[in-house]
Amino acid sequence: MNKNNVLEVRNLTMRFGGLVAVNDLSFDVREQEIVGIIGPNGAGKTTVFNCITQFYKDDEGEIWFRNNDNEEVNLNDVKVTDVINHGLVRTFQNVELVRDLSIIDNILIGAHNQFKTNVFQHLFNGRGVRKEEQALRDKAMKILTFLKLDHLKDQYAYGQPYGVLKKIEIARTLMCNPKVIILDEPAAGLNDRETDELSEIIEQIRDEYQCSIVLIEHDMGFVMDICDRICAINFGKFLAMDTPQKIQSNPLVQEAYLGGDDDVESPGS
């Protein structure tokens, strides 16, 4: 693994029956970098994320990750519930929160593996349990203050505006001292003001928590604005990976988005 890289995806291939969703894809993410993954609908972006976080077991390829202890791990050897322990955490395309829990409790779910007490101790709620709960609650409170959500902490997640829900999901990822945060369409469903706020937050997170961020997004303005590098894929195949300006002028990417010359038909014909 390259010394500057935290995440290296090598020759990733994922097939669903006859459909090749991801085809021999390779890319890398450096320390404290914001990487965007773009591609038309059905290009296999979310599948890549699901492979990295081990929801899907890939057919071929390796996913190397430099974890919190500076060890290199192949994530393919890690169970889906252990991925978070190494410092890789994700959000979901459709917000996946517990609607009937308060916001702060939702965030504490992100710290699930940092609790050391077990069920029997929870039944009796001894001093150790209370102390641990308080410590993590303070940590969650700090994150909420950082994201300016502290005034909402005891409200239910149910009924909050979409922008707040997206922020709660991001706050939940911060609970686990992340090395890499994977955001699946963070700006989908947000208005312009909320999108601006989000890009600010993402940059703040990168600086404050010193982590890398990988995101899928369809809002090109947002992606071009915030990302250090962009990886473009189409039909599961790697097209290009470069800075936003170069990606914009890349002919392959233009073709993927606008269609090639030969199969463009004018509306009249």
């Binding site: 978070i84 322990n85 979901f92 996946e96 517990v98 609790f115 929870h122 709620n125 349990v129």
Partner: peptide, 25 residues
Amino acid sequence: HLVHSRTGRALMAMSRSEHAAQAMG
């Protein structure tokens, strides 16, 4: 005590969204 602890939260996370719960460990 149980439902207001880590266990209770995990149970609720599991029932509302299995994927998110797994991603949180």
